[in-house]
Amino acid sequence: MQLSFYRRCGWVLMPGLLVIASCYPSLAQTPTLARDTSFTVYSALAKARKADPTITLARPAVPATIRARMNVPYCTAGGRTLQLDVFYPKARRRGGYPAVLLIHGGGWRSGDRSQHVPMAQQLAARGFVAVTAEYRLSTEAPYPAAVLDLKAAVRWMRANARAYRINSKQIATWGFSAGGQLAALLGTTNEETRFDSLACNTRYSSQVQAIVDVDGILAFIHPESGEGDDRKSTSAATYWFGSPKTERPDLWRQASALTYVGPHTPPTLFLNSSVDRMHAGRDDMMQQLSQLNIYHEQHTFPDAPHPFPLFNPWFQPTLNYTVDFLNRVFGGSSKTNN
């Protein structure tokens, strides 16, 4: 039996947002504080190679034109310091460079920011400041902790724009899988101040100007979604929310980017594998973006496994689509070879 997390816990009321005060979900939903290594680049590669032995891990040479700052603290949350890595061009540019916050996947429970260091390095070589940030996973803190953390990461980027040559008017989110869901949610909630409750760099905005969603779900309660089916085992989203969708559907909708699509939604790029359930709600969101005359693109890689952006032959086209889209949105001039 799974009791509702939210009926059993104490709460602190913040502007427009309930925040957990002193209680965690019981049974299988209890945050363990132990690292979950169920999703790694190498375990995903081994699984993908069972279907296609030609798949290889994307590890391009580190460009000589970039700099890196690793393990930079960006906020304290839940009693510990959150960190990020920054990759940026060596050359200075008047007005700074567009920036991209890269968000890793792993079912809101596993994975880490090192997954996308190769992508961040290549983006920096193409004229972007790329930031890979950690966030609290469901083993440590349930929703909305991850959202609060990543909003704080965007504010840190603006607070440190001069040091890292960031154009603070041109910040995008880029995320894969659970990270794609979070990237889309950050962008569609630009007007939702309820998610800006962490007391870090509060003088700065967490708004972003573009979204790149790489196989991330857009709506949790949707005919295409596989999240919330707990018949055989607890789904990743149920762990994250701390409550089944049958008990708190309002919470599951609150975390769905599709819920917030409106006139202020930024231009969006959808990059997808052949696994349809990984982009539940995408077509509905694209329809709404079309009605609102908001620029968007969608590209699917036929027969690609879900973790395709981590592997060859999909890494380079994922990079190219990302750079082309961001240059179109931000008015850049980087060139790619499609």
Rank of each mutant, 00 (worst) to 15 (best):
L3I: 07
F5W: 10
R8K: 14
L17V: 12
L27N: 14
L27Q: 15
T32A: 11
T37I: 04
K47L: 12
D52C: 11
P53C: 12
P63M: 00
N71P: 01
P73K: 13
C75A: 15
L82C: 10
G95K: 05
Y97Q: 03
P98F: 13
I103A: 03
H104G: 07
H104T: 01
G106M: 03
G106R: 07
W108V: 00
S110K: 02
D112G: 12
P118F: 00
P118Q: 01
P118Y: 00
L123T: 04
A125S: 14
G127A: 09
V131G: 04
V131P: 03
T139G: 08
A141L: 06
P144E: 04
L148Y: 06
L148D: 02
D149F: 08
D149E: 02
M157R: 09
A161Q: 09
A161C: 08
R165N: 15
I166E: 01
N167F: 02
S168E: 14
A172G: 14
A172L: 10
T173K: 10
F176N: 13
G179N: 02
Q181R: 09
Q181S: 15
L182Q: 02
A183F: 05
N190P: 09
Y204A: 07
Q209M: 06
A210N: 04
V212D: 01
D215V: 08
G216E: 02
I217Q: 10
A219D: 12
H222S: 10
S225V: 01
S225W: 07
G228C: 11
T234I: 15
S235K: 06
A236Y: 13
W240N: 05
P244Q: 07
E247S: 14
D250M: 05
D250K: 02
R253Q: 14
R253G: 01
Y260Q: 03
P263K: 10
T268M: 13
L269H: 13
S273L: 05
D276S: 11
G281L: 03
R282M: 08
Q288V: 14
L292A: 06
Y295S: 08
H296D: 04
T300A: 14
D303P: 09
A304R: 12
P307R: 14
P307N: 12
F308P: 00
F308V: 04
F308M: 06
P313I: 15
W314E: 00
Q316M: 06
N320R: 01
G332C: 05
G332P: 01
T336K: 01
